[in-house]
Design a protein around this nucleic acid. Structure first.
Lengths: 222, 222
DNA sequence: TAGATTGTTAATCGATTAACAATC
DNA sequence: TAGATTGTTAATCGATTAACAATC
């Protein structure tokens, strides 16, 4: 039923994330006036093996010239298209705490076409104000706003204990992708894409790595 | 020379991150008065297979009772020890922009023993003020502060173009672990642990997944 | 042409999972 | 004891990498 006749190619989940790194590095190179780059040179810059880069790109097409490398502007254009960055993505943020506000102002989002259209919160002190032109609205207005503005992506920046609730509400209101900053594992139907950014987990991983060679563990990794 | 006679066990890099999820889930359970849990039940909560959980834990010891599951408080205690969370970690933040300040106030860090001791910036308007009791100091004072307070961990929250510079400085001043929020790949010597949190990459991955089944790509994943 | 570098194959390496004997 | 659930083995699955023929 849902499976098309078209051949499907699998690729590692890690590839999409790396494409994003390639895109960013190429953007910087374009800015510096570099117009051709080899997988070797790009790999050096990103600490990624050149064969990994070539393989990642090969899942999507032929972008290089043998003996020459990749045309920076051309590859940028293709990656922009592959990553879906050739359009504007209207986004809402739920949670107007320190983190929610910092995220709303994060310059990196706007640069990539992610445009924060509104921030939602329950705190009536904050509702009605705005942050750099982005209105803070009451969560009760969320459903209407999502439909009115055809929002598909949302960022959750509320405390852990409210996050699942917010996710359920967003799902019911038609959101298709969620970037979650709350430190919980969210549950949702399969048609909703959820990715989490975990601020503490990585710091904890660092703490682990700082501890382990100080003779604290029975068994040590390599 | 550096290799001890002790047997070394390898385990996946992903394991440490999952231990951190287990810890968090168990903490919440302890708070709710649950005192025993099976790998099956914990897995359901975290969308992780029970065999994965048992395997992860098995790298570090025997924590469960067959037929009974795991004692929540005991496992918490062991995980706290393994993750190095049984001590205080003094941390500094470099960059007093919106993100740096939000990070400095993030309640999740303090809860885990990560204590932000100071924020460093070059902006003389900000230097001398404080955020919730955390002083903002000039970067020139950083080296002295690091030595004086025996800081080993730092968080980078400066613009991409300054991040490598800051990392080099931190390394020279004796920092051993860096959590990087700047959207660049940092280079450093092997004895310095760097992990990055990338705010845009995940949003880009979501954008990709929202685009791909809209007939945009030649080759489609599964 | 000679040199460089891609795109792709095949081998290796690493991580997850099912299955089950051990045992509480 | 019977039932439940661990700890561990072995199979499977997935991702990375070296190597090289193709070709600019």
């Amino acid at each position: 039923m849902s499976s098309s006749k078209r051949k499907r190619y699998k690729f590692p989940k890690t590839t999409v994330e790396r494409l994003s790194y390639y895109f960013r590095a190429l953007e910087e190179m374009a800015k510096r006036g570099i117009d051709t780059i080899s997988s070797e040179a790009l790999g050096n810059k990103l600490n990624i093996k050149s064969s990994q880069i070539r393989k990642d790109l090969s899942y999507f097409g032929y972008f290089g010239k043998r003996g020459m490398g990749y045309d920076v502007r051309y590859l940028l254009k293709e990656l922009r298209y592959i990553l879906g960055l050739d359009r504007e993505w209207p986004v809402i943020v739920v949670g107007a705490g320190h983190l929610g506000l910092a995220i709303s102002r994060y310059p990196g989002f706007d640069m990539r076409g992610f445009s924060i259209k509104a921030i939602f919160d329950m705190d009536t002190e904050k509702v009605g104000t705005d942050i750099d032109g982005i209105p803070i609205k009451h969560v009760d207005e969320m459903e209407h706003f999502i439909r009115e503005n055809e929002i598909e992506m949302a960022i959750i920046a509320v405390p852990a204990e409210h996050a699942q609730n917010v996710a359920d509400t967003l799902a019911a209101e038609g959101i298709k992708a969620i970037l979650n900053f709350a430190p919980v594992t969210l549950k949702a139907e399969d048609d909703i894409r959820i990715l989490s950014v975990d601020l503490t987990t990585k710091l904890e991983a660092l703490a682990y790595y700082m501890s382990f060679n100080k003779d604290k563990l029975w068994k040590i990794i390599n």
